[in-house]
């Protein structure tokens, strides 16, 4: 009960925040990006957290999503709302292609293989100029503003769309985590051989998870393209600013928990945006340097993520309550 009240309050606050921000201002942008990255980290959390397969290649799905909807809009005038589902289908397909040869790999090996896959996607996007426009990038064309065309005068609607997306992805995560699939994934994570013995088709479960994660990430790529308006292969398929960042957000927040990616995104994205803003003119690299230091500190101090701070706090409060 208490839990539900907390969730309702947080959602209401999140809905109220865009109302007090400048509808097309800087902070609206930061808020929207934070929600989008939280949703992406949550999608990563399915495969990275529940299945414990640490993917460093999610930029592949993200980039496919951004490119699919934008190319459909540019070449055929198809609304990104529909393009988003095409993006999801292709993202799922890509996840299947990547997962089949790599699913048996664990830990470091899986991370390395997915990193290479992300880079393959980036190289292909750079080279396949006739489809993607190559290194020059793509601009989302201007269409008269309307909801059906997914085109708005202000950033405000994008913030609400991002919020809805985050809620949907989080609900999917929780449903899977609590459902039969979550139990299977946990069994595989704890002991894959034992899971196999009690009749879990480990390969199938991991493949399903990877595909769901890929579909969601690609669809979020479409949302991102609509906010960013311009992107090129090196940003949309970036190992550092997409694949690694998404994984980091989930890990810093608390991997395998529904709260973790949201906490991580609200911690990292605003700090990063602020530092980029403060230092971009002064010294190149400083904001990323500080980002790296924060990352190292959090991993050494809270290897299971910031979410453990709250757990520790709650434990202390309850301990005190029991004493008094």
């Amino acid at each position: 009960m208490k839990r539900w009240i907390a969730i309702v309050v947080i959602v209401l606050v999140a809905m109220a925040v865009p109302q007090v921000l400048n509808p097309s201002g800087y902070w609206m942008r930061v808020f929207t990006l934070t929600l989008l990255f939280a949703a992406m980290a949550q999608a990563w959390n399915l495969i990275g957290g529940l299945a414990n397969q640490l993917s460093l290649g999610h930029a592949a799905f993200f980039g496919i999503g951004a490119y699919t909807s934008t190319i459909l809009l540019l070449k055929f005038g198809i609304s990104p709302w529909i393009g988003m589902f095409a993006a999801g289908a292709l993202g799922g397909l890509a996840a299947l292609v990547i997962a089949v040869p790599t699913m048996r790999l664990q830990g470091h090996y899986f991370a390395l293989a997915t990193l290479a896959f992300g880079e393959v996607a980036r190289v292909i996007a750079n080279v396949w100029t006739s489809l993607t426009g190559g290194p020059g990038g793509l601009s989302v064309p201007f269409v008269p503003p309307s909801f059906a065309a997914y085109s708005f005068k202000q950033l405000l609607p994008h913030a609400y769309i991002a919020l809805v997306a985050l809620i949907i992805v989080t609900v999917i995560f929780e449903v899977i985590r609590r459902g039969a699939m979550g139990y299977r994934l946990r069994a595989i994570r704890e002991n894959a051989a034992a899971a196999e013995v009690i009749g879990i088709d480990t390969t199938k479960v991991k493949l399903q998870t990877a595909v769901i994660s890929g579909v969601l990430t690609a669809m979020l790529g479409t949302l991102f393209a609509q906010v960013a308006v311009f992107f090129d292969p090196d940003t949309a398929f970036s190992a550092a600013s997409i694949s690694i960042r998404v994984a980091l957000i989930a890990i810093i927040g608390g991997v395998g928990t529904a709260v973790g990616p949201i906490l991580g995104a609200f911690f990292i994205v605003p700090i990063e945006e602020l530092m980029n803003d403060l230092f971009s003119s002064g010294a190149a690299g400083l904001s990323q340097l500080i980002f790296g230091v924060i990352l190292i500190v959090v991993i050494l101090w809270r290897p299971r993520g910031l979410v453990t701070i709250f757990e520790a706090l709650r434990a202390r409060l309850q301990g005190r309550g029991a004493q008094s």
Binding site: L54, G107, Q288, L289, G292, I299
Partner: peptide, 23 residues
């Protein structure tokens, strides 16, 4: 520690060294 912490500690180190050099 878990492999998550191992991988991402060195990833953090990578970010620090690269951007330290840039700076």
């Amino acid at each position: 520690a878990l492999s998550v912490a191992q991988i991402f500690l060195t990833v953090g180190l990578m970010i620090v060294l690269e951007n330290g050099a840039l700076l």
